[in-house]
């Protein structure tokens, strides 16, 4: 593809840094690196930014890609930044195609030990389909912040530490 596919990490807005920096919460045994990505052409990133912020507030290091990234750019960023998990957000309905593509690319780069989760406007049937594909969790709108944080930490805790 065009030169746009070369990976250029975005600066993360300072607004999202919790006061005091990245001091892990007392309950946090291990701080994780998490990439929040917006694949495809969908520009709705209120949910992506919120999840990025709450994970950051919980003490993790979070990178947000910004909107309109290709699966290739997201996977390249994840590998380069050596993240433990990728969270994909999509509200345009193209989740089946684009989540699958990210998963495929992770496998191709032998990076499928990176935990993949997601969220957005995703009907129940598609949630089952994505879980069967290997996406570990789908958080639809209205999921409490505490639940997202604890599920992600629990899923990462179940994995061997790098």
């Amino acid at each position: 593809m065009s030169e746009k596919s070369s990976y250029t990490p975005n600066e993360v807005p300072e607004f999202w840094l919790p006061a005091g920096g990245y001091d892990p919460a007392p309950s946090l045994t291990k701080r994780r690196r998490i990439l929040i990505g917006k694949p495809g052409l969908d520009g709705h990133d209120r949910g992506a930014k919120y999840v990025a912020q709450i994970l950051r507030d919980a003490g993790h290091e979070v990178i947000y890609t910004g909107i309109r990234r290709t699966p290739e750019q997201i996977v390249a960023a994840a590998v380069q930044e050596d993240v433990d998990a990728i969270g994909l957000s999509l509200l345009s309905g193209s989740h089946n195609v684009l989540f699958a593509r990210v998963f495929e690319l992770l496998k191709a780069r032998q990076a499928d030990d990176i935990l993949l989760f997601g969220g957005g406007v995703i009907p129940a049937d598609d949630v089952d389909r994505l879980l069967a594909l290997g996406v570990k969790a789908i958080f639809t709108p209205g999921t409490p912040a505490a639940e997202i944080i604890s599920r992600v930490e629990q899923m990462l805790g179940e994995r061997a530490c790098p």
């Binding site: 495809g40 052409l41 193209s94 089946n96 195609v97 684009l98």
Partner: peptide, 11 residues
């Protein structure tokens, strides 16, 4: 176009 993959006729 490659950029349109998965998005055609969606929203």
């Amino acid at each position: 176009a490659p950029e349109a993959c998965g998005e055609v006729g969606r929203v």
